[in-house]
């Protein structure tokens, strides 16, 4: 079981309120991602759940029982830290077995679980090495191994991939997703990278300045962002925002249109503009188009297109995919 409920949880450091009152329900077996810009309080929230920080007020319940004042070790949660936090003086085997040793589990069972975890994580050949002798990805796996042997009610990950290079990051992303499918244990995963959030989550929690902006599945957030912040944060490249007369024409204070929902034409369209930079990725082409009176618009075109820097192009938004926001930034439709 791994159901976590936050009820009116707040956290202040001194006079600074980092988390204003916050409610959140995490269901058993869910893969929940906390996403938001750096410094928005994601780690703090995770550490409150872990018990590494006290809440300033409010309650945290795990599987229906109040855990607000329970010691971290007794909450039945396992955490994977950004720096991995491996014990440098212990072998991989001892690192993974450490929580079991602390739980005074018998030696045979310890060995069995360590061997099991090592097999799942491809660490069997490295069990007798020290963390210092491992690559970044391997260290990451040891940290995960140390978490899974405990068979926790939920896993907490704090930006676990941010210290890895890009290629490895994609790999580990898949491995963690697979792990979740195998174990079916609740996972709470913190990242500032919306791509990680979109690809891994069952449920995304978008945070800004400690406040929850929206909770929903990746596609809900993509298709129906509650406000401009979520709309701009989810999706890559970022959504284009247009104010003023061009927005009023659609009956909104601000309109938002994703780069992939703009049609490009060399002959006709709503807006006329000049191509600035064109980024050719092969599968896609990103064009940055300067339209008079507007901020540059990003346009995403599938495959290759025959336009170059300085060409005049015409852009039209897909009306069905247009997002309308009011003066407060809330989405109207």
């Amino acid at each position: 079981m791994g159901q976590i409920t936050l009820n009116q949880v707040t956290k202040s450091f001194g006079d600074v309120e980092v988390i204003p009152p916050l409610d959140l329900q995490i269901n058993d077996g869910e893969f929940v991602v906390f996403v938001g810009p750096s410094g928005c309080g994601k780690s703090t929230l995770l550490r409150l759940i872990a018990g590494l920080e006290d809440v300033s007020s409010g309650e945290i319940a795990i599987d229906g029982t109040d855990a607000t004042h329970v010691q971290p070790a007794r909450r039945g949660l396992a955490m994977v830290f950004q720096s991995y936090a491996l014990y440098p003086h212990m072998s991989v085997r001892k690192n993974i077995a450490f929580p079991l040793k602390m739980a005074k589990m018998d030696k045979a069972e310890q060995d069995r679980r360590v061997a099991n975890a090592a097999k799942v994580l491809n660490l069997t050949d490295y069990l007798d090495r020290r963390p210092g002798q491992l690559s970044g990805g391997q260290r990451q796996r040891v940290a995960i191994g140390r978490a899974i042997v405990r068979e926790p009610a939920a896993f907490l990950f704090d930006e676990p991939l941010s210290n890895l290079d890009a290629a490895l990051r994609v790999n580990m992303r898949l491995e963690i997703s697979e792990l979740h499918q195998t174990l079916k244990t609740t996972m709470i995963y913190v990242t500032h990278d919306q791509v990680e959030a979109m690809t891994m989550a069952d449920k995304i929690v978008v945070l800004q300045a400690g406040r929850i902006e929206q909770v929903g599945s990746p596609l809900e957030l993509y298709n129906a962002p509650r406000n401009k912040f979520v709309a701009g944060f989810i999706g890559s490249p970022k959504m284009n925002f247009i104010d003023g007369a061009d927005a009023a024409q659609f009956g909104a204070h601000t309109i938002g249109i994703r780069p992939e929902h703009i049609t490009l034409s060399t002959t006709e369209g709503l807006w006329q503009g000049r191509v600035g930079v064109a980024e050719h990725l092969g599968s896609d082409t990103f064009l940055y188009v300067h339209v008079n009176g507007l901020d540059p618009l990003t346009v995403r075109v599938s495959g290759e297109v025959g336009v170059r820097h300085g060409d005049t192009v015409f852009l039209s938004p897909d009306p069905a995919k247009l997002h309308r926001f009011d003066a407060q930034g809330l989405r109207q439709s």
Binding site: A73, A85, Y87, M102
Partner: peptide
Amino acid sequence: IPGEILEAARMDGATLRE
């Protein structure tokens, strides 16, 4: 010494003495 390592130990169920 990074504090995270000690926090990891705490999460792993180590008492203060341990």
